[in-house]
């Protein structure tokens, strides 16, 4: 057979059906913005209830994570995310889903080696690189502080 791999890959790329960019961006924007606006509403309510700014902020995060966990548990999150794309992925809702979904999935392998070990399968990189870049920043901040 006459087969040129480079040319073939070019053709594959060329004729590949693309994701509907405009539609995806529209939903990512509206869902993502909507979730942030919901966060804003929760923040206002918590502040009104007398919480400190910092506690109110944390509680907003916790509330959104709780909602995502419940939606993931009842099987609704993936159906919303199919439409919302990055709109549900990038807010903390996506982080929650990335923790809850493998936990749910690996229940059949047991609570320790299944849920326990796999719960970080997707969210692990986020935690690692957040911690790592934070530590690097801390060292730089400390060293710079010595000379100021």
């Amino acid at each position: 057979m006459n087969f040129d791999r480079r040319r073939y890959l070019d053709r594959v790329k060329e004729r590949e059906r693309r994701s509907p960019l405009f539609k995806n961006c529209f939903f990512a924007f509206t869902f993502g913005g909507g979730i942030c606006a919901l966060g804003q509403l929760l923040l206002s309510l918590y502040l009104y209830a007398g919480l400190s700014e910092r506690d109110a902020g944390t509680l907003v995060t916790v509330t959104l994570i709780f909602l995502s966990a419940v939606l993931t548990g009842v099987g609704a999150f993936d159906n919303v995310a199919r439409v919302a794309g990055a709109g549900t992925l990038v807010p903390v809702t996506g982080f929650a889903n990335a923790v809850v979904s493998p936990a749910l999935d690996c229940k059949s392998e047991g609570l320790v080696m299944g849920v326990g070990a796999k719960i970080f399968a997707i969210a692990g990189p986020v935690l690692l690189f957040a911690t790592l870049s934070g530590a690097v920043y801390g060292v730089v901040y400390y060293v710079v502080g010595l000379f100021l």
Binding site: E16, R17, R18, S19, N24, T72, G73, G75, F77, D78, V80, A81, R82, A84, G85, T88, L89, G94, N97, A98, V100, S101, P102, L104, D105, C106, A121, I122
Partner: peptide, 17 residues
């Protein structure tokens, strides 16, 4: 899906291919 891709309840978009 579990073995090759992502958990069943993971919220992601699949590409048209």
């Amino acid at each position: 899906e579990r073995q090759f891709r992502l958990p069943l309840e993971y919220g992601g978009q699949r590409t048209p291919t």
